[in-house]
Design a protein around this nucleic acid. Sequence first.
DNA 1: TCAAAGTTTCAATAATTAGTGAAAGTTATT
DNA 2: AATAACTTTCACTAATTATTGAAACTTTGA
Lengths: 168, 168
Amino acid sequence: MELNEARQKFIEAWGKIGSEWGINRTMAQVHALLLIAHEPLTTEQVMEALSISRGNANMTLRDLIDWGLVEKQHKPGERKEYFFAEKDTWKIAKQVAQERKKRELDPMIKVLNELSVVKGDDKDPAYKTFKTSVTNINKLAKNVNKGLESMFKAEESWFWGSIFKVFK
Amino acid sequence: MELNEARQKFIEAWGKIGSEWGINRTMAQVHALLLIAHEPLTTEQVMEALSISRGNANMTLRDLIDWGLVEKQHKPGERKEYFFAEKDTWKIAKQVAQERKKRELDPMIKVLNELSVVKGDDKDPAYKTFKTSVTNINKLAKNVNKGLESMFKAEESWFWGSIFKVFK
DNA sequence: TCAAAGTTTCAATAATTAGTGAAAGTTATT
DNA sequence: AATAACTTTCACTAATTATTGAAACTTTGA
């Protein structure tokens, strides 16, 4: 396989994975493009490489910056903005996990806590089932939460090590 | 908060989380409905509870069965099919992880393996960056893969224990 | 074998989400 | 302060994804 074909395939695959995880395809593709770019790219270059409009490129790059996956750079003597991606995959993984925790898990835990104080008759099976389900999901969510906190603090090898150690 | 209001909120929250993770909202809501149902429900009851069409209810229930989250049940003397959800959250989490691994991570690893054999000139920075990025993502993906395999085999407390132990 | 009860399919439609591009806004330079 | 280079916004349109509902299909029992 030739390099350009491979780059293309990588961008497609990353886009597909992204869309399966609720991240818009273009955003994942721009991220992929920057991941395999050996130097920072301008908005123009991103537009060109992925055949997308200026508006789309701009918003997508901004979103990637919000997610902490991409940064702006200025080259001395030039007005144009250049964009480059964090390339350390462990940092990327932590960053994504952190953002999603903030946007999704934290609000979910808040709702679950509200729901677990609902009062009712312990003899009512509808109440009992509700209570049990919510309590159990709440416990799981809190464990995930703690697991993520560990991940954020951890070095990569340390993290995986702690998972694998026990399960040879 | 009253039980019915709480049930409603739970269904909405679960639907929202689902859609943020690339799972169609209705599917997540039907799952939520069955999770807090104290007895198996018929297609009619699902349609009624969530105001969705027969076709939608049918397809969604089938999808949930494909995901291994819901099962059919027949009551003796009745022709109707009843549906109920697995309620053990650890089993649910494993099941979801397993399905997504099969559908997404495994194909991704396959692509990454294909891409990592691309040949090129080590002095070409475009080639070097591509190679490095793909290799690193590949390593991460394989660690996630191993981590999931551990999870599938593990008991819940054992799994979390192994993560928390190291990070007090 | 027929018809009633129930289930599934799928073309048509609706709802949602993503993308465009031109206009407005901003910033740096002369 | 005027202009040119560049960035951002947002109303409109396109593309995608989800849902409906009626027709086709299947199963059961009389």
